[in-house]
C-alpha cells in the first residue's frame, strides 16, 4: 500500500483546515478564534493549490490573511475591552443551532455523496493559470470585472464614511 504525495498533502491540508475551523467556531476566547482563522485560511489555500488554482491560492493568502484577517483583528481589538473584561464571548441558542446545523450538514453531505457527478475523465496536469485567468477577465468576464472594481471603490469609500467619528452638529 503506497500513498502518493497528493493524497498525503490533501489529508494534511484537510486536517489543518477542519481542525482550525473547529477552534474558530468552538473556542470561547475571541483572540484564539481570530488566530485559528489564520490557519484555516492557509489550509484552504493549500486545498486550492491541490485543485490546480495557484493564482487563487496566492490571492487567498494575500487578501484573506493580509487584508480581511487584519481587519477582523482590528475589529476585535477596538471593540473588546482588553484590559478590564476577559475576552470570552458567549453563545446563544446552542441546542436549536446544533439541531439545524446537523440536519443541514446531513442533507448537504448526503447530496454530495449520492449524486453521480460527471467527473471529466481526462486528467489535466498542473499548469500556470494566471495568464488564462487574465485573458478571461479581460474578455468573457469584462463587465463583471469592471462592476466589481466599482463595487470595491464604493464599498471602501462607504466604509471610511461610516466608520468616521461623527462631528457634533453646529
Amino acid at each position: 500500500m503506497t500513498i502518493d504525495l497528493f493524497t498525503l498533502a490533501f489529508y494534511l491540508f484537510a486536517l489543518i483546515t477542519l481542525a482550525s475551523a473547529a477552534v474558530v467556531v468552538f473556542s470561547k476566547n475571541i483572540i484564539y478564534s481570530s488566530f485559528a482563522l489564520l490557519f484555516t485560511f492557509f489550509g484552504v489555500a493549500g486545498l486550492y493549490v491541490l485543485l490546480m488554482a495557484d493564482f487563487i491560492a496566492i490571492t487567498q493568502i494575500m487578501i484573506y490573511v493580509g487584508g480581511i484577517l487584519v481587519l477582523l483583528l482590528f475589529g476585535v481589538m477596538l471593540t473588546t475591552k482588553v484590559i478590564s473584561v476577559d475576552m470570552r464571548t458567549g453563545t446563544i441558542q446552542t441546542l436549536p443551532a446544533v439541531l439545524v446545523v446537523s440536519a443541514m450538514a446531513g442533507v448537504l453531505i448526503g447530496i454530495f455523496w449520492t449524486t453521480d457527478w460527471k467527473v471529466s475523465p481526462t486528467a489535466v496536469g498542473f499548469e500556470k493559470t494566471a495568464p488564462r485567468i487574465g485573458e478571461m477577465l479581460l474578455s468573457t468576464y469584462l463587465l463583471p470585472f469592471e462592476i466589481a472594481s466599482v463595487v470595491l471603490l464604493v464599498a471602501l469609500v462607504g466604509a471610511a464614511m461610516i466608520a468616521r467619528r461623527e462631528k457634533k452638529p453646529l
Binding site: T17, L18, A21, A22, G75, T89, T91, P96, V100
Partner: peptide, 21 residues
C-alpha cells in the same frame, strides 16, 4: 466533503455566537 463540513461549521458560528465579529 471538506467544503460541506466547513460550511456547516460556519453556519454554526453564525447562529450561536453573540459577538458580531
Amino acid at each position: 466533503l471538506i467544503s460541506g463540513i466547513l460550511f456547516s461549521l460556519g453556519v454554526f458560528a453564525i447562529l450561536t455566537r453573540r459577538n458580531a465579529i
